[in-house]
């Protein structure tokens, strides 16, 4: 009796041995007959992104608007603190969850709400009772308005999804043009030691499962705020 792995791999090799499948034909016209789709990269076909940083920030801002991400450019940390204090007051927040980075600490400096830090672990119910979660991120993707987070850059897996309001603090140097660049950055940064969790977050949680009508805050955060600081 052979194991499942041997059975499946044998079936696959048997199936592939005899018959080559017809290669998909390229539908776009090209003067060069030798060209195959593999000669191209996703970057050539996906939505175009400008090369300059200000173009990328503008694109990220436009995408955020469509996605209902609340995007703020902050000149100084003081500006960011002011936005946070408005959110705290408006929502009457009692408890905020975060993890320790220089920027999250600076942002919360004058804050009066109770703080839960996930740096060394947390109780699930404790985190669930927080009004907001504040995290850093790996990078911001201009092309789609996505934010790449990971276990080390966002205080674990749950901090950025369990509290009803997710706030991300980022620097302009973290802006990358597109998804390809974001994945390359993750590979460069982690090599073979990837975190167990990496996620592209593109707007607040949403659903259209009832009559295809958009509702925000299905299971994850109802609101997503991005505070972008200059370097």
């Amino acid at each position: 009796m052979s194991d499942g792995k041997t059975i499946i791999l044998n079936r696959i090799r048997e199936a592939l041995r005899e018959n080559p499948a017809p290669r998909p034909h390229a539908s776009h016209t090209s003067s060069d007959q030798e060209e195959t789709p593999r000669d191209h990269t996703p970057r050539e076909w996906l939505p175009k992104v400008g090369e300059r940083l200000d173009e990328q920030i503008d694109l990220f801002a436009r995408q955020s608007e469509g996605l209902k991400t609340e995007f703020h450019r902050c000149g100084t940390m003081e500006d960011a603190r002011a936005i946070l204090s408005v959110l705290v007051a408006e929502g009457a927040w009692k408890k905020i969850a975060t993890h320790t980075t220089p920027d999250t600490s600076a942002l919360l400096e004058k804050n009066r709400a109770e703080i839960l830090k996930t740096d060394t672990g947390y109780q699930i119910d404790d985190l669930e009772s927080c009004d907001a979660g504040i995290t850093g991120c790996e990078c911001l993707v201009a092309q789609t308005g996505a934010i790449l987070v990971s276990a080390p850059s966002a205080g674990g897996r749950a901090l950025s999804v369990l509290p009803p309001h997710h706030i991300i603090i980022a620097r302009t140097s973290q802006m990358v043009p597109d998804l390809t660049a974001a994945l390359e950055l993750a590979k460069e940064r982690y090599g073979n030691k990837f975190p167990s969790f990496l996620s592209f977050i593109t707007g607040p949680s949403r659903t259209g499962d009832i009559e295809r009508i958009l509702v925000l805050g299905a299971h994850g955060p109802k609101r997503l705020t991005v505070l972008l600081l200059e370097d």
Partner: peptide, 12 residues
């Protein structure tokens, strides 16, 4: 253009 969460899990 992008689904809200695209998450990559590499292990426990």
């Amino acid at each position: 253009q992008m689904t809200c969460y695209n998450t990559m899990y590499g292990g426990p």
